[in-house]
Simulated scan of single mutants.
Amino acid sequence: MQESISVCHNQYILKPQSIESEELENATFHAKQRAIEARQTISPWKKSHSLYETGGWKSLFENINQPLNLSTQSKEFQTRYNESANSLEQVVESAKLPLCPSGQPEIGNTVVFGVVGGTVEAPSIAYLTESQPVTEEILALSDSVKPTEIFRIASSCQADACRHFDGANCRLAVRIVQQLPTVVETLPACQIRSSCRWWQQEGKAACYRCPQMVTDNGYSSKILQEVGDPYSK
């Protein structure tokens, strides 16, 4: 895997990174070390723990205290989602929605498409050359940290169930493009691009900024926290 190249003004340009399936376990080990270090270096301005919480997902799963097997997770989410949906048609329509590239493993239609690398201050995503379905074996690799601290997971966009969605667009994707610097000069070899909400909505501009995003991060810069705040303008 290639390392990031530091440049001036505290910005950095990455060479797009890719990782073969057989390298996943080794990459995960390094990602866990970064996650543990990030937990020990929490930003003093940090208002929340993750895009997961600020995006509204926590309220959907706040009663789940222990890891569940995938079949139980699926049933739990389906029950909760059905309760929040106004009609069967809404549930059917949700299956047609694109993928959220900063998703959660509890939600159906999930794949791992990247592993978090880089440093605490400058994370960088290594994109898998072949996306992996989220399985119990994959989740077990996270061990003592959350899967979303070490993986980038794509799951079905939940539209109105997410605080980042304004009824038409993902406002998180909008803020990423408007407020964050680009960190790559060529498109990453992302396996979910054609189905990605951010790509479909914002195009290449989102992809040039995507490698710096960590869904559940113990340490984020102030600007990343502002971008992740659904109430930020």
Rank of each mutant, 00 (worst) to 15 (best):
Q17H: 10
N69R: 00
R39L: 11
I150W: 03
G218H: 11
P44F: 12
S156W: 07
A140R: 00
D166Y: 09
V214R: 02
I42E: 13
S194T: 07
Y219C: 13
E23W: 12
L128Y: 00
P133H: 12
A161W: 10
V177S: 01
L187R: 05
I138Q: 03
S74I: 01
R80M: 08
N169E: 11
S221N: 12
F61R: 01
V115A: 02
S155Q: 00
V92K: 12
T41W: 14
L99V: 04
P123N: 06
I13L: 14
V184Y: 03
K75I: 10
L24N: 01
P16L: 01
R209F: 13
R209Q: 14
E93V: 04
I13N: 01
V177H: 03
L180A: 15
N86C: 06
C190K: 03
A35Q: 09
I13W: 01
R209C: 07
C157M: 08
Q191M: 07
N169F: 12
T54G: 02
Q90K: 15
A35D: 09
H49S: 14
C157K: 12
E130Y: 01
I107L: 02
G55M: 08
Q104E: 10
Q212S: 15
N86L: 03
Q33S: 11
V183A: 05
D166E: 05
P147G: 01
E3A: 07
E53D: 05
W57Y: 06
I153S: 12
F113K: 00
G55H: 08
S144E: 11
P101A: 04
P147F: 02
G167C: 06
T182C: 05
A189M: 07
L172F: 13
R152N: 14
C210W: 11
Y231P: 03
C207K: 07
N86D: 03
G56Q: 00
S21G: 03
G167S: 05
K32D: 08
E149D: 05
V115Q: 01
F151A: 02
I107K: 07
S144A: 08
V115F: 04
N63H: 12
K222C: 14
C190F: 02
Q179P: 04
Y231H: 10
P230V: 09
S18Q: 14
E89C: 07
Y52L: 13
V7D: 10
L139D: 00
E130W: 05
R80A: 15
V184D: 00
I5W: 04
V7F: 14
L88P: 06
Q225G: 11
G108D: 09
Q179H: 09
A27S: 04
E76M: 00
C100T: 07
V112H: 12
L70I: 14
S74W: 01
G118V: 03
S4M: 11
C8V: 11
Q132A: 05
S131K: 08
P211I: 15
F29R: 08
T148S: 13
A173H: 09
A31T: 11
E23R: 15
Q2E: 12
C196K: 09
E185D: 08
W198N: 04
T148F: 06
R171Y: 04
P123H: 02
S4Y: 15
A173D: 05
Y81M: 07
S131T: 03
Q40N: 14
S194N: 08
V183D: 04
P44L: 15
V134L: 04
S232G: 05
A189Y: 05
S43F: 15
A205R: 04
N63E: 10
T129F: 00
Q40A: 14
N86T: 08
E137N: 10
